[in-house]
Design a protein around this nucleic acid. Structure first.
Length: 273
DNA sequence: CTCTGCCGCGAAACCTAC
DNA sequence: GTAGGTTTCGCGGCAGAG
């Protein structure tokens, strides 16, 4: 197996990804990047303060994403400058590579009948069965990327795309091979690995949903249920945005169970306020 | 009903061994 | 240069929340 998969070297960030030097089996399930604070600080102080075209009203430091007005190409150009996006000179040399990625275009041929597609995109003529699908598709053509990576400044249209991307910075790899302990950031990577390396064929139908994996983006902990994850975050990361985002109804439901589990354990600090 | 988070699929890019 | 496995990400579809 090529060692590149154990020690990633493609795009080292300004602050070294020390966690990437660990073997997968050591970092797979619970992995806390110890330099995450310095990275966030670096980005916050250097890039955000210098981006005069930013969104000062909407950028809370606690937010995982930011409203941005960069175009994707503009963004790539900006990232080439150390003062805008936190890239070092070393990374600036790799910028052509990033640029290639950013302009990568995909021509995806979607199977299915076009006869029932009543809503078509004026820009690319792609057709959709539902208006809301067209509305969502139009975001793809929108130059404004709503969700900005706090590590590298790259923008995404989708929060999940950002969340998935951030794992490349944090080193969190929730999907672990039971056979060789190698870990992956995405499920399809694990399934591809299982199929090619171990010859394990997944027994799922096309597009069949797998069991949801509940991942703590703070440390990489994975739980079998939302309740389990909530309990983990509640105890281990009381200041996590995850707790704030959990709906009140669900939180109340989980809180009752957690209370019975903890049986009088002290509340987290921010809950005490 | 709309919005949005999450998911899987697919493909380009990447990396190392040979 | 090529092969083969991995990484990364764009995007359509689905489903739950509001």
């Amino acid at each position: 197996m090529p060692r590149a998969f154990l020690v990633k070297r493609r795009t080292p960030p300004p602050a070294a990804r020390s966690w990437d030097e660990l073997p997968d089996e050591e970092r797979a399930d619970t992995y806390i990047p110890d330099s995450i604070d310095c990275i966030l600080k670096y980005v916050t102080e250097d890039s955000l303060s210098n981006s005069s075209s930013g969104d000062p009203a909407g950028d809370s430091p606690e937010r995982g994403s930011h409203e941005v007005t960069n175009t994707s190409n503009d963004l790539c150009e900006d990232l080439g400058h150390p003062e805008n996006g936190g890239h070092s000179q070393e990374n600036a040399e790799e910028q052509p590579l990033d640029l290639k990625r950013s302009v990568r275009s995909k021509v995806k041929v979607t199977s299915g009948t076009l006869n029932e597609e009543l809503y078509s995109c004026d820009i690319c003529d792609k057709g959709f069965r539902l208006q809301r699908m067209l509305n969502r598709h139009l975001k793809c053509h929108n130059q404004v990327k709503r969700h900005l990576c706090t590590f590298c400044g790259k923008g995404f249209n989708d929060t999940f795309d950002l969340k998935r991307h951030v794992r490349t910075h944090t080193g969190i790899r929730p999907y672990k091979c039971d056979i060789c302990n190698k870990a992956f950031t995405q499920r399809c990577s694990l399934e591809s690995h299982l199929k090619k390396i171990h010859g394990v064929q997944q027994g799922y139908a096309y597009k069949q949903r797998r069991d949801k994996l509940f991942v703590c983006e703070e440390c990489g902990y994975t739980g079998p249920s939302q309740e389990d994850l909530y309990l983990h975050v509640y105890k281990g990361h009381p200041g996590s945005a995850f707790l704030k985002k959990t709906t009140k109804k669900l939180a109340a439901l989980l809180q009752n169970k957690i209370t019975s589990v903890l049986q009088g354990s002290p509340k987290p600090e921010d809950e005490m306020e």
